[in-house]
Design a protein around this nucleic acid. Structure first.
Length: 200
DNA sequence: GGAGCGATGTCCT
DNA sequence: GGACATCGCTCCG
Protein backbone atom coordinates (compact mmCIF):
# COMPACT_ATOMS: atom_id res chain seq x y z
CA UNK A 1 0.00 0.00 0.00
CA UNK A 2 1.13 3.60 -0.61
CA UNK A 3 2.12 5.68 2.37
CA UNK A 4 -0.76 7.76 3.77
CA UNK A 5 -0.40 11.49 4.37
CA UNK A 6 0.56 12.03 8.05
CA UNK A 7 -1.78 13.34 10.73
CA UNK A 8 0.11 16.66 10.86
CA UNK A 9 -1.14 17.31 7.31
CA UNK A 10 -4.66 17.72 8.73
CA UNK A 11 -3.83 20.10 11.61
CA UNK A 12 -4.39 23.48 9.83
CA UNK A 13 -7.84 25.06 9.30
CA UNK A 14 -10.22 23.55 6.72
CA UNK A 15 -9.72 26.16 4.00
CA UNK A 16 -5.98 25.46 3.99
CA UNK A 17 -6.55 21.69 4.00
CA UNK A 18 -9.11 22.00 1.21
CA UNK A 19 -6.59 23.50 -1.19
CA UNK A 20 -3.87 21.10 -0.04
CA UNK A 21 -6.09 18.07 -0.67
CA UNK A 22 -6.78 18.93 -4.33
CA UNK A 23 -4.78 16.53 -6.49
CA UNK A 24 -4.25 13.98 -3.70
CA UNK A 25 -5.43 10.38 -4.01
CA UNK A 26 -8.05 8.46 -2.01
CA UNK A 27 -7.75 4.68 -2.04
CA UNK A 28 -10.33 2.27 -0.65
CA UNK A 29 -9.38 -1.39 -0.30
CA UNK A 30 -12.67 -2.94 -1.28
CA UNK A 31 -13.24 -6.70 -1.60
CA UNK A 32 -9.55 -7.29 -2.34
CA UNK A 33 -9.42 -4.58 -4.99
CA UNK A 34 -8.06 -1.03 -4.84
CA UNK A 35 -10.46 1.73 -5.77
CA UNK A 36 -8.55 4.97 -6.27
CA UNK A 37 -9.65 8.48 -7.19
CA UNK A 38 -7.93 11.84 -7.39
CA UNK A 39 -9.54 14.67 -5.39
CA UNK A 40 -10.61 17.43 -7.81
CA UNK A 41 -13.33 19.29 -5.85
CA UNK A 42 -13.79 20.00 -2.12
CA UNK A 43 -15.58 22.33 0.29
CA UNK A 44 -14.34 23.70 3.63
CA UNK A 45 -16.61 23.59 6.68
CA UNK A 46 -15.53 25.42 9.81
CA UNK A 47 -16.47 24.54 13.37
CA UNK A 48 -17.38 27.90 14.84
CA UNK A 49 -18.88 30.85 12.99
CA UNK A 50 -20.00 28.64 10.10
CA UNK A 51 -23.81 28.24 10.16
CA UNK A 52 -23.60 25.81 7.22
CA UNK A 53 -21.43 23.30 9.11
CA UNK A 54 -22.85 20.24 10.87
CA UNK A 55 -20.72 21.17 13.88
CA UNK A 56 -22.27 24.65 14.22
CA UNK A 57 -24.79 23.63 16.89
CA UNK A 58 -22.30 21.68 18.95
CA UNK A 59 -21.19 18.09 19.29
CA UNK A 60 -23.75 15.31 18.83
CA UNK A 61 -23.51 11.57 18.29
CA UNK A 62 -23.83 12.16 14.54
CA UNK A 63 -21.04 14.71 14.12
CA UNK A 64 -18.66 13.55 16.89
CA UNK A 65 -15.92 12.63 14.40
CA UNK A 66 -15.50 16.29 13.36
CA UNK A 67 -14.63 17.16 16.95
CA UNK A 68 -12.19 14.27 17.26
CA UNK A 69 -8.56 14.02 16.13
CA UNK A 70 -7.63 15.18 12.59
CA UNK A 71 -7.31 12.80 9.66
CA UNK A 72 -10.46 10.78 10.25
CA UNK A 73 -13.34 10.07 7.87
CA UNK A 74 -16.72 11.64 8.68
CA UNK A 75 -19.34 9.84 6.61
CA UNK A 76 -22.96 10.89 7.00
CA UNK A 77 -26.26 9.89 5.44
CA UNK A 78 -28.23 12.56 3.58
CA UNK A 79 -31.58 12.88 1.79
CA UNK A 80 -32.57 9.35 2.71
CA UNK A 81 -30.34 7.66 0.12
CA UNK A 82 -26.84 9.08 -0.20
CA UNK A 83 -23.63 9.25 1.79
CA UNK A 84 -21.10 12.10 1.87
CA UNK A 85 -17.41 11.81 2.75
CA UNK A 86 -15.56 14.41 4.82
CA UNK A 87 -12.09 14.45 6.35
CA UNK A 88 -11.70 15.91 9.84
CA UNK A 89 -9.02 18.52 10.44
CA UNK A 90 -7.72 20.80 13.21
CA UNK A 91 -6.59 19.46 16.62
CA UNK A 92 -8.80 17.19 18.72
CA UNK A 93 -11.54 19.21 20.42
CA UNK A 94 -11.82 21.68 17.54
CA UNK A 95 -14.42 21.10 14.84
CA UNK A 96 -13.49 21.47 11.18
CA UNK A 97 -13.71 19.30 8.12
CA UNK A 98 -13.41 19.14 4.35
CA UNK A 99 -16.24 17.73 2.22
CA UNK A 100 -14.97 15.67 -0.72
CA UNK A 101 -17.24 16.72 -3.60
CA UNK A 102 -15.67 15.07 -6.64
CA UNK A 103 -12.96 12.63 -7.68
CA UNK A 104 -11.33 11.75 -10.96
CA UNK A 105 -11.35 7.94 -11.20
CA UNK A 106 -7.81 6.50 -11.31
CA UNK A 107 -8.15 2.79 -10.57
CA UNK A 108 -11.02 0.32 -10.34
CA UNK A 109 -13.34 2.06 -12.78
CA UNK A 110 -15.19 -1.13 -13.72
CA UNK A 111 -16.08 -1.81 -10.08
CA UNK A 112 -17.04 1.84 -9.62
CA UNK A 113 -19.43 1.56 -12.56
CA UNK A 114 -20.92 -1.64 -11.14
CA UNK A 115 -21.46 -0.01 -7.71
CA UNK A 116 -23.11 2.96 -9.44
CA UNK A 117 -25.35 0.67 -11.47
CA UNK A 118 -23.86 1.90 -14.75
CA UNK A 119 -22.32 0.14 -17.72
CA UNK A 120 -18.51 -0.05 -17.68
CA UNK A 121 -17.17 2.44 -20.18
CA UNK A 122 -19.36 5.36 -19.22
CA UNK A 123 -17.74 8.76 -18.89
CA UNK A 124 -15.57 8.92 -15.74
CA UNK A 125 -17.41 12.05 -14.59
CA UNK A 126 -20.63 10.04 -14.22
CA UNK A 127 -18.94 7.78 -11.69
CA UNK A 128 -17.55 10.24 -9.15
CA UNK A 129 -18.63 13.84 -9.88
CA UNK A 130 -20.69 14.72 -6.80
CA UNK A 131 -20.45 13.84 -3.10
CA UNK A 132 -23.21 11.21 -3.22
CA UNK A 133 -21.95 9.69 -6.43
CA UNK A 134 -18.36 9.29 -5.30
CA UNK A 135 -19.37 7.50 -2.09
CA UNK A 136 -21.48 5.09 -4.10
CA UNK A 137 -18.66 4.53 -6.62
CA UNK A 138 -16.07 3.98 -3.86
CA UNK A 139 -18.36 1.71 -1.82
CA UNK A 140 -18.32 4.00 1.23
CA UNK A 141 -21.04 3.84 3.91
CA UNK A 142 -21.54 5.38 7.32
CA UNK A 143 -21.70 2.06 9.16
CA UNK A 144 -18.47 0.76 7.61
CA UNK A 145 -16.36 3.90 7.26
CA UNK A 146 -17.45 6.69 9.62
CA UNK A 147 -14.60 7.38 12.06
CA UNK A 148 -11.89 5.51 10.14
CA UNK A 149 -8.35 6.88 10.46
CA UNK A 150 -7.20 7.75 6.92
CA UNK A 151 -3.58 8.24 8.11
CA UNK A 152 -3.25 4.61 9.27
CA UNK A 153 -1.52 2.46 6.65
CA UNK A 154 -3.59 -0.51 7.82
CA UNK A 155 -6.86 1.32 7.31
CA UNK A 156 -9.00 0.22 4.33
CA UNK A 157 -9.43 3.92 3.49
CA UNK A 158 -6.38 6.16 3.11
CA UNK A 159 -5.38 9.46 1.50
CA UNK A 160 -1.99 9.60 -0.21
CA UNK A 161 0.12 11.67 -2.58
CA UNK A 162 1.71 10.81 -5.93
CA UNK A 163 3.30 14.21 -6.43
CA UNK A 164 0.61 15.61 -8.71
CA UNK A 165 0.15 19.38 -8.35
CA UNK A 166 -2.95 21.12 -9.77
CA UNK A 167 -2.04 23.95 -12.15
CA UNK A 168 -4.82 26.25 -11.05
CA UNK A 169 -7.28 26.16 -8.14
CA UNK A 170 -10.56 28.10 -8.35
CA UNK A 171 -12.69 29.16 -5.33
CA UNK A 172 -16.50 29.66 -5.49
CA UNK A 173 -19.43 29.59 -3.03
CA UNK A 174 -20.44 26.21 -1.64
CA UNK A 175 -23.19 24.14 -3.26
CA UNK A 176 -26.48 22.93 -1.82
CA UNK A 177 -26.52 24.97 1.37
CA UNK A 178 -28.88 27.75 2.50
CA UNK A 179 -26.81 29.42 5.23
CA UNK A 180 -23.57 31.31 4.62
CA UNK A 181 -24.14 30.52 0.96
CA UNK A 182 -22.12 33.52 -0.21
CA UNK A 183 -18.73 32.53 1.22
CA UNK A 184 -16.20 31.15 -1.32
CA UNK A 185 -15.30 27.93 0.49
CA UNK A 186 -15.63 25.56 -2.50
CA UNK A 187 -12.39 24.78 -4.29
CA UNK A 188 -11.76 22.80 -7.45
CA UNK A 189 -9.06 22.00 -10.02
CA UNK A 190 -9.61 24.32 -12.99
CA UNK A 191 -10.51 22.56 -16.22
CA UNK A 192 -11.05 19.10 -14.75
CA UNK A 193 -14.06 17.40 -16.36
CA UNK A 194 -14.96 15.45 -13.21
CA UNK A 195 -15.79 18.57 -11.19
CA UNK A 196 -19.50 18.74 -10.29
CA UNK A 197 -21.62 21.84 -10.75
CA UNK A 198 -20.40 25.19 -12.15
CA UNK A 199 -16.82 24.92 -13.45
CA UNK A 200 -15.92 28.57 -13.73
C1' DG B 1 -29.05 22.30 -21.03
C1' DG B 2 -31.73 23.95 -17.43
C1' DA B 3 -35.57 24.27 -14.09
C1' DG B 4 -38.72 21.50 -11.27
C1' DC B 5 -39.58 17.75 -8.34
C1' DG B 6 -40.02 13.24 -5.94
C1' DA B 7 -37.63 9.64 -3.48
C1' DT B 8 -36.10 8.46 0.94
C1' DG B 9 -33.79 7.92 6.44
C1' DT B 10 -31.86 10.28 10.25
C1' DC B 11 -31.30 13.83 13.40
C1' DC B 12 -32.69 17.80 16.04
C1' DT B 13 -36.44 21.20 17.76
C1' DG C 1 -42.63 17.82 12.07
C1' DG C 2 -39.25 19.81 9.24
C1' DA C 3 -34.79 20.33 7.41
C1' DC C 4 -31.27 18.20 5.02
C1' DA C 5 -23.43 19.63 2.42
C1' DT C 6 -28.11 14.88 -3.36
C1' DC C 7 -29.37 12.62 -7.53
C1' DG C 8 -31.78 11.28 -11.63
C1' DC C 9 -35.84 11.69 -13.86
C1' DT C 10 -39.11 14.40 -16.36
C1' DC C 11 -40.66 18.39 -19.14
C1' DC C 12 -39.69 22.42 -21.73
C1' DG C 13 -37.24 25.23 -24.70
Amino acid sequence: MPKPLPRTFYLPPPDIISKALLGKLITHRFEGEKLTGRIVEVEAYFGENDPAAHSFSGKTARNAVIFGPPGHAYVYFIYGMYYCLNLSCEPEGQAGCVLIRALEPVKGMETMARLRGLASGVKPALLTSGPGRLCQAMGLTRSAHNGLDVTDRNSPLIVHDDGYEPELIVATPRIGISKAADLPHRYFVAGNTCVSGPRK
